[in-house]
């Protein structure tokens, strides 16, 4: 399972091709200059007329939107409108669905991931995902975080330890678990587990973080911590967050997309969506007049 051959065609400049580790370190910090992207013009995720079908049933259709680097993009919309379908199409985790079918183009870091030669492993290393319910593995905290790096072939213990610590620090969990790394992840609280999942996703050094309702299983305090964390992370990561909580979307995101019945109704700066939406449906939804 070498990741070098059949690589995604474009890759962030920060990834040291042919180097010892295909890996951008957090301590190399500021990823943007290395990636040499113009923050506002080049989209990290770019979908063009993207459709996804569950068999004959439409999941999302005709989605065209650009997601910009180093910012938080919120996706809101009523239940069943295709938010999860879209966000799960980005890292192609939807491939698992037996009769699922994707149409159109969806670029991640410039590469159309639905092209045949896509290296799924590389793609998923670049796009960390956080799920609705905390889903740590039934392993120790350390092994959970080290799972991704180990997959990338890192065996050296001190190296692993460093990555685990960095990731846990980045996920604002380090101080709470520094002494129990050998304990099972299941011994943590729900909020801690979710932050552990974020740390686990960060440990593979992605530049995109996909979060599907990361706070829906958490209490307000834990939610607050995650939101703070998102705030911090957006300096280095491109974050896409699906949420049902309008205040949350307003609080954490710079841009907001409103989905309805599988379609993208409106996509704009968050401030605009919540204060002065262009579409009636959006207004109904954000003001709570929508069912």
């Amino acid at each position: 399972m070498t990741t070098e051959e059949n690589d995604m065609q474009t890759q962030p400049a920060g990834k040291a091709k042919g180097g010892a580790s295909p890996f951008i370190r957090l301590d190399e910090g500021k990823l943007q200059p290395k990636r040499k992207v113009d923050m506002n013009s080049i989209a990290v995720v770019k979908s063009e007329n993207f459709n996804f079908y569950y068999g004959s049933k439409v999941g999302v259709k005709n989605i065209t939107m650009d997601i910009y680097p180093c910012s938080v993009t919120a996706i809101i919309g009523p239940s069943g409108c295709g938010k999860s379908t879209f966000i799960r199409s980005i890292n192609r985790i939807n491939d698992l669905i037996p009769h699922g079918r994707a149409e159109g183009k969806l670029f991640v870091n410039g590469h159309n991931v639905y092209e045949k030669n896509t290296n799924l492993i590389r793609l998923r290393q670049q796009t960390g995902m956080v799920f609705q319910r905390p889903n740590p593995f039934p392993k120790s905290i350390f092994d959970n975080v080290a799972y991704g790096p180990r997959l990338q072939g890192i065996r050296d213990n001190s190296e692993l330890q460093r990555i685990v610590e960095e990731s846990l620090r980045a996920a604002a969990l380090w101080d709470e678990v520094r002494d129990d790394l050998k304990n099972s992840a299941f011994a943590l609280s729900g909020g801690q587990q979710q932050r552990l999942c974020i740390a686990r996703a960060l440990a593979t050094r992605p530049n995109i973080l996909l979060m599907d309702e990361p706070c829906s299983a958490l209490d307000p305090t834990a939610t607050g911590k995650i939101e703070d964390l998102i705030d911090q992370l957006q300096k280095d990561y491109t974050i896409v967050i699906v949420t049902h909580n309008m205040q949350q979307a307003a609080r954490v995101s710079q841009r907001t997309a409103f989905f309805c019945l599988g379609e993208l109704v409106e996509y704009d700066l968050t401030s605009k969506i919540f204060s002065n939406p262009a579409k009636k449906r959006t207004e109904d939804y954000v003001t709570g007049r929508f069912g």
Binding site: I93, L96, R124, Y147, L151, T204
Partner: peptide
Amino acid sequence: TYKEASLALGA
């Protein structure tokens, strides 16, 4: 969810 988590991490 275990499986999804693992796949999403690039396994």
